[in-house]
Amino acid sequence: MVKIFFKPILREAVVIAILGAVLAFAANALSPKGLNIQRNYFPADISSAAPQTNATPTRATNTVPAEENVAARLKEKGLQPLNSAEARQRFDDPRYQQGLIIFIDVRNAQEYEEAHIPGAYHFDYYYPGNEIGQVVAACQPAEQIVVYCGGGKCDASENAALMLRDRAKIPGTKLFVYTGGTTEWKEKRFPMEAGGRNSGKSVDESHGR
């Protein structure tokens, strides 16, 4: 009796699972936001990177010890962490205007256009597209490259820095990761720019204030 009841349901479920999986992978392949299945998005060791993000369940818990952990983890991978003061120091350095120090924003295009550190290059880590060529070209003559994302739980900056070092062969000594990212930069009320790179448009103007 149970067999008679469940057999057609199971048969349906198997058909749905197979058809659904095929359609799902096809939709992902066709979607402009689809993921590249064969790309390792987390070149850093997954098991060592993930517990950190696990330990930050709420915004309230993103406290100093967590930042220290992030800094230690970055150093372990041969990357150089920067705090807000150090990032600001580089932003104010005259070499920033000469392109010898550059900032790279690895968040998505929408976040970048809403507000980014003035003059920062955009490089969406998950969808590098055509930006990678421009960014690598800017990295070549630069003496210092500061990579940042949203801060807090975000680790795209770390992965992007590893990608630039390991795949684009940018020397690790030039690469810095601003761990606080835009969250801390905004909290410190440091300048931010809206729209495209060097648009000169302040975030307040873009909101019509």
């Binding site: 659904g20 999986a21 359609l23 799902a24 992978f25 939709a27 992902n28 689809g34 993921l35 590249n36 299945i37 064969q38 790309r39 998005y41 987390f42 997954i46």
Partner: peptide, 11 residues
């Protein structure tokens, strides 16, 4: 990991 993240939402 990529397969889960790519296919599960559409599924």
């Amino acid at each position: 990991l990529n397969s889960i993240a790519a296919a599960l939402p559409w599924f």
